[in-house]
């Protein structure tokens, strides 16, 4: 499904990712853990195609197609979703209106019909309940004045509505309490399936209690330095990242 091959990324003339390779087969959830500054967010931006994240070497493919020449919106239409570490506010645009615009833009790009207002309304109300956002919040301007936790819930709501083929959760757990972590687990577990993959980027092990990864990779200094089962996450929780930082340096 998602395949990253010897990826080198330069941001403002500094090489951040230095030959990262990773493969997430369909149906699996992989976690990427790593210390601060190891390149975790750079990886999520590189996959989704943010400007200024220059690919100097390597390739990223989704279902065998290279993403490198695609604009961010084309990658989104192909099924990539990023849950942002720091979600944005969009003043003056109602939440429902924003999500519907996004959904229809993707559907249009894929040659599908626009979703009807009634179907959309039914779906978003149902999913808002799951992520714990009130109807009233859906009518408000997108994320404006929302708390950090509410913004993360909004990311999960969008993921549930857009139904991507591949979801990337970039430190979605940061700033969340236990109830919210459970909610994230609920959304991801509900969406897990043989045709869908996830990449969960996190600093801590605690989210992985709710979203059980098939594989865990350790990212340090721009490369994957270790891969294994969920036991790696527990080990990191006990011993920290010291040994990886030293071995990478």
């Amino acid at each position: 499904m998602l395949k990253i091959d010897d990826l080198h990324i330069t941001v403002q003339e500094t090489e951040i990712l230095k030959g990262l390779s990773l493969e997430v087969p369909a149906g699996e959830v992989h976690a990427i853990m790593g210390p601060n500054g190891s390149g975790k967010s750079t990886l999520s931006y590189a996959i989704t195609g943010r400007e200024d994240y220059e690919v100097t070497q390597g390739d990223i493919t989704l279902d065998g197609d290279s993403l490198l020449e695609m604009d961010p919106n084309e990658r989104a239409a192909k099924g990539l979703f990023l849950s942002f570490q720091h979600p944005l506010e969009i003043p003056g645009v109602a939440t429902m209106s924003f999500i519907r615009t996004a959904l229809n833009a993707q559907r249009k790009a894929r040659g599908e019909n626009e979703v009807t207002a009634a179907d959309f309304l039914r779906a978003i109300r149902e999913k808002a309940k799951i992520v714990g956002l009130s109807d009233e919040k859906l009518k408000r301007p997108f994320n404006v004045g929302f708390s950090g936790g509410e913004k993360k819930r909004m990311e999960m709501l969008q993921m549930a509505m857009l139904e991507p083929r591949f979801g990337i959760l970039d430190e979605t757990d940061s700033g969340l309490d236990i109830d919210a972590l459970k909610m994230v687990g609920e959304v991801v577990n509900e969406m897990r399936g043989p045709d869908r993959g996830f990449l969960v980027i996190t600093h801590y092990q605690r989210l992985l209690d709710y979203v059980k990864p098939d594989r865990v990779h350790v990212l340090a200094d721009g490369r994957i330095v270790e891969s294994g089962g969920p036991e790696i996450a527990r080990e990191l929780e006990e011993h920290g990242y010291d040994k990886y930082i030293q071995s990478a340096a």
Binding site: T48, R50, E51, D71, P72, N73, R75, A76, A77, L80, F81, L82, F84, P87, L88, I90, P91, G92, V93, F98, I99, T101, A102, L103, A105, Q106, A109, P141, Q158, L162
Partner: peptide, 24 residues
């Protein structure tokens, strides 16, 4: 970038943001 990641092309994204800015 946020809007484009959600599926809007660049012009749609600008238009959405400007419309939001002008909503009042």
């Amino acid at each position: 970038f946020y809007c484009m990641q959600r599926g809007l092309n660049e012009e749609e994204a600008v238009s959405l943001l400007v419309n939001g800015f002008c909503k009042d």
